[in-house]
Amino acid sequence: MSTVALAPAAALTVLSLTLAWRPPSLHPAWSARVLVVLSTTTALTVSTTVAFIAAVFIAGQLPAEAVAATSQGRLLLEHAPIPAYPGLLAIALLAVGAFCTIRLAYRWWRDLQTVRQHTSGISDHDQPIAMAVPGHHGGVLVSRGLLRLLTREQLQVVFRHEHAHLRHRHHLYGSVSAFAASIFPPLAWVHRSVRLALERWADEDAAATVGDRTLVAHTIAQVALASPKSSTSWHPALANSHVVQRVEALLSDAPSTNRVAGPALLSGAGVATSGVTSSAFQLNHVFLLLVL
């Protein structure tokens, strides 16, 4: 097994993490799309590569006659032997990915069940809470604390923001990138950027309809400052909230609604990464294994 087989996975990982770290100056709607495409293809490529390494390693450990009896087995043996260290590492990565994915799926399902029981309405909560509830009977959940805190104009901002989440199906982007991050944990950094881009997207949507960027910025700031303090995390980059970045962005100029750059970068990223992903599939004989 040559190290060339690792190249696509490594290249995509580096590209995703670079873009998550230094997002291109696009409208957040396009950043979100590009990042979701990248994290999905990266997760697919990495997981097939790792699965292949694990399969070759396991085939190498089994008795040679039994494995060579089948054509798949002979294919795997061609790439053997894999040293113990990377082989075990691949198995460990697969196990971690599978565990995190199952855990995320369970939590996702439970959270949606819980909010959907209440679909939308007003909660008796003193904290200012507003969230979009996706799905058939979805809507907007707000708390008494929020209604007490904000003026009618500011409430309009909140409802527009949540409406944008529902209209553009942001929960789908969020869950796809969350699943990618659970398959391959380093993509959690990309997931963070996706979440920021989605919030920014909804902010910009709200600002465009309301027609007042400062009002949106001040509403976010007011709600965040009135919310209970979050615990201090050991590193500022891991903090849960993107509030400061969102407010800063709203107080500066509107993002360019360049109709070329975003779609161009997205299709470019799509074509390039699907090329890399399929080359990874070929290198790893995924198709051959599937067909056989």
Binding site: R107, P128, M131, L225, K229
Partner: peptide
């Protein structure tokens, strides 16, 4: 938000974030 799929309008801030804001 354990599943990181639902998101609130704005989360609470820690001390340094509040100062920055």
């Amino acid at each position: 938000d354990p599943s990181h799929v639902l998101s609130q309008f704005a989360h609470g801030l820690n001390n340094s974030e509040a100062a920055a804001l």
